Simulated scan of single mutants.
Amino acid sequence: MVQLQALSQRNFLNTADLTLQEIQQLIELALKLKQGQSQASLAGKTLATLFFNPSVRTRVSFATAMFKLGGQALDISSEGAWAFEYRDNIVMNGATIEHVKEVAPVLSRYCDGIAIRCSELVTKSAESAKVGAWETAKQDIVLKSFAKYATVPVINMESNVYHPCQGLGDAVTIKEKLGQTQGKKYVLSWAYHPKALPMATPNSQMLAACDLGMDVVVAHPEGWELDPEILAVAQRRAEQSGGRFSISHDQDEALEGAQIVCAKSWGALKYYGQWEKEKELRVQHQDWIIDESKLQLTDQAHVMHCLPVRRNVEISEGVLDGPQSIVIDEAENRMWAQMALLATLL
């Protein structure tokens, strides 16, 4: 049985909350679990997974991870739960039925951990979700309320701001494919999409590459800048790991010599919630796609995407089905990364 060292944080809300050493330990444990070199057990333990958004990979990978570790995951969807209240000092005579001050501690009595997925832009709709201001969304009130009132570890399965489990899974995949990551070039490239998507995943993917000491380049059209506070964290983590961090508005130039290319779309921060106005600008950038011609600019780069992916929109079919695509390995490694996290945290 592997001896697990406790994390410095009770919760897992953002990879940047952990030290670089802790991130590396989780990556190494995930790869050892995948290779059958280590064993860990969560026998008799239960994880409550609350999904306020649609999910395939996150839902199944967490359930399978708990099963493989000898525990179980209880799937609670928003349709099957009460309407929860998160505001303090509120007279609950409206649509909400139960306050998080009761929900979180009760679930903590039943379960050994609580995992939350709540991102306002993740929907099944063909249109971008109607949302408020970014400064409000950035508060991540649902996730942080559960973290405040729960007495067991809370795991972020994707919020408005971060998707740390995707970031950790990507880091495991990059380490698995490249071995030595220090100084290798990683490009996170914005890609066209017919609707505005969350910034949580690219935020965490960017941070993961920075933690690996890579030469990280975030490429996007002008106007699609990520949150400046998060960019500052990425810059700091890159410096701490001995890597580099930069931003480019020229996709071709950014891709030159890359060993890893991660395609991902996200909505423009400056037009957050004003999606019709943003769409007028977004449609002008349909050439921001990772296709065969773009891939030729790289150093035989591995191509990543968190999935689901729009074929021949974000990435061409030829690239997705080609030998340089590692999107399926990337999806699988979410499970191993989460197994390492769960075994260490719970």
Rank of each mutant, 00 (worst) to 15 (best):
L42F: 06
W275T: 05
I155N: 04
E280R: 13
N53M: 00
A238N: 05
L295G: 13
A200C: 12
E225P: 06
R236Q: 10
V303C: 07
T19G: 15
L269I: 01
K270P: 02
Q182E: 11
A258V: 01
R10T: 15
P308Q: 07
Q24A: 13
T151S: 15
L269N: 05
Q25C: 08
T181M: 06
L345R: 13
V217C: 13
L341T: 04
L297Y: 02
R237T: 15
I155L: 12
V142D: 03
A200D: 05
L207W: 05
K264F: 10
A95Q: 11
K130L: 15
L18K: 14
T344H: 08
K185F: 04
W190D: 02
Q180P: 14
A238R: 00
V217D: 03
C262T: 08
A208R: 02
T46F: 06
I97C: 10
V309R: 08
C165L: 09
V261N: 04
M206Y: 05
L207A: 11
P54D: 03
Q37Y: 09
V216F: 01
C306M: 04
P54S: 08
N14A: 12
P105E: 07
M92T: 12
G267D: 06
Q251W: 02
L178Y: 00
K45Y: 04
G223W: 01
D227V: 14
G44Q: 01
D211G: 15
V327T: 09
V309K: 07
N89I: 13
T151D: 10
L207P: 09
L4V: 13
M199Q: 09
G169I: 00
G322C: 08
D321L: 13
S108P: 13
L212C: 06
V60E: 07
D211Q: 14
D140W: 08
P308K: 06
A63T: 11
S128Y: 05
W134Y: 10
P164Q: 07
E85A: 14
Q5Y: 10
V122S: 02
E332K: 12
L226R: 11
T173P: 03
R87A: 11
V122D: 03
L320Y: 09
A337F: 04
Q72D: 08
G322E: 00
A200F: 02
C262E: 08
Y110A: 06
W224F: 15
Q5L: 07
E256H: 11
E256N: 10
Q21C: 09
K175T: 15
A129K: 01
A234C: 11
L29W: 10
K270Q: 12
S241I: 14
R311P: 09
D211E: 08
D215I: 05
L107H: 07
A268C: 01
I174E: 03
Q259G: 09
L188N: 13
L20I: 14
E276N: 13
A258W: 00
R244S: 15
L341H: 12
T15E: 03
K138R: 12
F245G: 09
A191W: 01
